[in-house]
């Protein structure tokens, strides 16, 4: 069952990224079959297409102008000052962080439980559940947003912290599930029986045996659930209220209604901090190389 989720090519590639440099035959084979120059040229162009739009927000954030001007004409920290002093911006950042932490927490607890449970299950029910979760990943955000919005209106939880947290926990759940399932790939279930036979309660077994083994998967899943919530804009646009909105919604308003260049500072902060956040697990991994 883990064949679909533990086989991602890139995790293999990280494995041979650490192994390959010490293998000369690999290198020799490549010189007999060179990478054509035009392929490298295309690669560079596409890489630029990937990176440039993300990068230009950083110089923009240091411009002092009052419109969306690029390249910036002057250097100033005015936009950052406004970001950190205007309650509209700093308040929505606070809301976003609060929603993301709570949503990630719920998604992680439920997603981990679900992954451990699904790992024990086989057969039709498990397959159905997994398909269901994957379907939730391909449902267009706008369709989900409209459906969730109308239902939440009836339940009277639009514009509330609880509503945001519920919706974001739901979209974060599949990421936790996938990460934990792949961490469970090499998990030996006999350990659970061994632990039980030695007198541990199921909870004790989970905390002392299962958790240490799948901990990294849980942390990764939690991180991605957090980032997904922090970045989610479509559902948040529908659920917003005058008193409660998240940072992406404020950014959206800044572009569409207010023409407020503070968004450049907000974008740069988000891009830099999310990138750092996502690189943390990789750096931690590098310190504990697997053979």
């Amino acid at each position: 069952m883990t064949a679909t989720t533990t086989r991602p090519a890139s995790s293999d590639s990280v494995a041979d990224a650490t192994a390959a440099p010490s293998r000369p035959p690999h290198r020799r084979r490549r010189s007999a079959d060179p990478v054509p120059w035009w392929l490298i040229a295309i690669g560079v162009v596409v890489a630029g297409y990937f990176v440039l739009p993300t990068v230009i927000v950083i110089p923009m954030s240091f411009g002092g102008s009052s419109s969306f001007q690029f390249p910036p004409k002057e250097f100033s920290l005015a936009l950052y000052e406004r970001f950190f002093t205007d309650p509209k911006w700093i308040g929505s950042l606070g809301n976003s962080l609060l929603v993301a932490v709570l949503a990630a927490l719920i998604a992680t607890v439920f997603g981990t439980a679900a992954a451990v449970g699904l790992n024990a299950l086989t057969g039709r029910l498990a397959r159905a559940m997994r398909t269901l979760l994957m379907i939730s990943m391909v449902t267009p955000a706008i369709v989900l947003a409209v459906a969730v919005y109308i239902s939440f209106l009836q339940w009277r939880i639009t514009g509330t912290l609880g509503g945001y947290v519920l919706a974001h926990a739901t979209i974060g759940l599949p990421f936790v599930l996938v990460a934990v399932t792949s961490a469970l790939g090499g998990f030996d279930r006999r350990l659970l029986r061994a632990s039980a036979s030695l007198g541990a309660t199921p909870l004790h077994t989970f905390l002392r045996v299962t958790m240490p083994l799948i901990g990294r998967g849980v942390v990764t899943g939690a991180l991605f659930a957090f980032v997904t919530s922090l970045d989610e804009v479509v559902i948040a646009l529908f659920l917003r209220s005058p008193t409660f909105q998240t940072l992406p919604v404020q950014m959206y308003t800044a572009v569409t209604v207010e023409v407020d260049p503070t968004i450049a500072a907000a974008s740069s902060l988000v891009v830099v901090s999310v990138t750092i956040l996502l690189l943390i697990p990789q750096l931690v991994r590098r310190k504990t190389p697997r053979s």
Binding site: M251, S267, V270
Partner: peptide, 18 residues
């Protein structure tokens, strides 16, 4: 992967400016 996981709003804003 970095653009894949970083802000959708930041990227759309950047395209708007460009």
């Amino acid at each position: 992967l970095v653009p894949f996981w970083t802000s959708v709003m930041a990227r759309n804003f950047a395209w708007l400016v460009l």
